[in-house]
Design a binder for these strands. Structure first.
Lengths: 231, 231
DNA sequence: CAGGATCCACTATTGGATCCCG
DNA sequence: CGGGATCCAATAGTGGATCCTG
């Protein structure tokens, strides 16, 4: 049975290439088909189930809840990201990268940052996600491995520096999601009132909105176009 | 009197450089000040007086209604365009270039087109035009002469070809203002029901909406940035 | 709470319509 | 009707908020 083939590949991958092949094996399948071999429920509607597709693809590729398979991806040095795309292969959303504390931003250069580490190597799995499609109907596209080109890396680093600079000088008023040409900082929490421990400009304890790095849709659009040209 | 200085330069210019100097002489003045030396009325509000600033600047530079001074600009080979800009020097609007008949588009290559001719050399006069400013309060910026760079020319030509191609193949449904990265085609008339004589795909007579070429605001923004870097 | 993400009200952009003059 | 342009309702874009899971 087709879906069992997917399950069979789910144990550890020896290389990034092997992982890519497994991901490409999913191309053309609907989410319903992925779920079929995975013993899990399929919610009817996308809304209120935001991370669902991402988790299904993780599982279809063997990244289960177990620490062991999570370690596979860790060992391979690959970050897995589903990318919701329109029929015209245009990303419909920005891409979450990771949380970050403003204080760590100030201390950490781009090269040593978690965002740079996560973006060093990404397996993008496009998902055709027109709003009118149910989760079940959404279809997996052709996955690809990406690392930033020299130009892209320069853009990311410049945005990081701009964001870190504003954090350092305490210009929190002007440090919103509009900053950054390709990388941006946005609130990320269950709701807007959530606060976490932080330190203010002078290192004194304070409470702050949790924030995370995101890639702008325009940037992943460029990444996707380049990948399509490769094919 | 200062405004007489302006009037004194209004007779024919010997060169583009002389014209540019006269235009730069207007920098920093308000429209009220320009009008002061010109014997004409100043409407209170911008709305319902759309071409007013353009005509005032023309007159301040000696392009009166008389065919003679119009010929000055013609002889110099310069097109005069005011450019409404925000305080951040961002163009607030697209820029009208000229009317065009779809039939002529099909026959005329870029090099021989009126739009290419008009864009070959332009004197842009930025006007600070925040919506809350009355006409009188709007201020003239630093004028500059522009000709398309090689890259800009390639973009313009490619857009022209794209537009002409759709006109040729009769794809009028897809030939709207969205076509063209920097150059676009838009309806231009007193109102949407205006029609002019035209010919259809087979050369048969028909009625069509008058259309004109415009430069997108994003393009003139780039032109303006380059000019500001020069200064 | 970190990580898988998308939602959606609001803002920014702009395509088509329009205004005045000669 | 061509040329000087801007207006503004509708659409596109996105910043901040939010949802579910382990």
């Amino acid at each position: 049975m087709e879906t069992q083939t997917v399950a069979a590949t789910s144990a550890g991958f020896a290389s990034q290439h092997e992982l890519l092949r497994a991901a490409r094996h999913l191309a053309g399948r609907t989410i319903a088909e992925l779920v079929h071999g995975l013993d899990c429920e399929l919610p009817a509607e996308p809304v209120r189930n935001k991370g669902y597709v991402g988790r299904i693809v993780e599982r279809a590729l063997g990244l289960s809840a177990s620490p062991l398979s999570a370690a596979d991806f860790e060992t391979l040095g690959v970050e897995l990201k589903t990318l919701p795309v329109s029929v015209a292969s245009r990303p419909r959303e920005s891409t979450f990268v990771c949380y970050v504390a403003l204080s760590s931003l100030v201390e950490t250069p781009w090269e040593a940052s978690r965002v740079a580490y996560k973006l060093a190597r990404v397996l993008f799995v496009p998902i055709e996600s027109e709003p009118h499609l149910t989760l079940a109907e959404r279809r997996v596209g052709s996955a690809f491995l990406w690392s930033p080109t020299r130009e892209q890396s320069a853009l990311l680093q410049a945005d990081y520096a701009e964001i870190a600079g504003r954090a350092a000088s305490g210009e929190l008023e002007t440090l919103d999601a509009r900053v950054g040409r390709v990388l941006q900082l946005r609130p990320k929490a269950a709701h807007g009132a959530v606060r976490v421990r932080a330190s203010d400009g002078e290192g004194l304890p304070s409470m702050a909105q949790p924030r995370a790095f995101y890639l702008r849709a325009g940037f992943t659009a460029e990444v996707l176009r380049a990948a399509l040209r490769e094919d």
